[in-house]
Amino acid sequence: MNHDKGPPTGPLVLVVEDEPLIRLSAIEMVEDAGYAAVEAHDALEAVRILDSRPDIRIVFTDIDMPGAMNGLLLAAAIRDRWPPIEIILTSGALVPAAALMPDRGLFLPKPYTQTQLETAFNQIEAARPPYDA
């Protein structure tokens, strides 16, 4: 991690990824982009975190996850229960059809770069009013 950037300045990001090394890399990239991050190893854990953390503003989730809920189902649940939260989906196996993407959702194919992730964050921030502190 790049600790020279100072404290996070962007909104809180929930990173949802079942592969530990990929999750660790994603969290590092989120933090290097200036955002604070919390992590979940699957969609059900993500829902539990979202229930208890009203400060999460962006969910960055893998689509392909084990269990009863994949990333697309998680995105649908977020849109239904927490509509203001922004969603970035990622996958190395498939590109979701536009009809399956949540409103305002972005897609990043794996492997993604730091620049691609920061561009996605910039798109989200440009399209949304500032969050209340």
Score class of each variant (00 low, 15 high):
N2E: 09
K5R: 15
K5S: 13
P8S: 10
P8Q: 11
G10H: 04
G10S: 06
P11V: 03
L12S: 01
V13Y: 04
V15D: 00
V15A: 04
E17T: 04
E17M: 08
D18C: 12
P20N: 05
P20T: 03
R23N: 11
R23M: 08
I27D: 00
I27T: 07
I27Q: 10
V30T: 08
V30L: 04
V30S: 00
E31P: 09
E31I: 12
G34N: 11
G34R: 04
G34C: 08
Y35F: 15
A37D: 11
E39I: 07
E39M: 15
E39P: 10
A40C: 09
A43L: 09
L44M: 15
L44V: 12
A46Y: 08
A46G: 06
L50S: 02
S52L: 07
R53H: 13
I56S: 01
I56N: 04
I56L: 10
V59N: 01
V59E: 08
F60H: 10
F60Y: 12
F60Q: 05
D62R: 06
D64M: 15
A68Q: 15
M69D: 09
G71F: 14
L73H: 13
L74V: 05
R79K: 15
W82M: 05
W82V: 02
P84E: 09
E86Y: 02
I88Y: 05
T90C: 02
T90S: 09
A97S: 13
L100K: 13
L100C: 13
M101A: 03
M101F: 04
P102G: 06
K110W: 00
K110T: 00
Y112C: 02
Q114K: 11
Q116G: 10
Q116H: 08
T119Q: 14
A120M: 02
N122F: 05
Q123V: 10
E125M: 14
E125F: 11
A126V: 07
A133I: 06
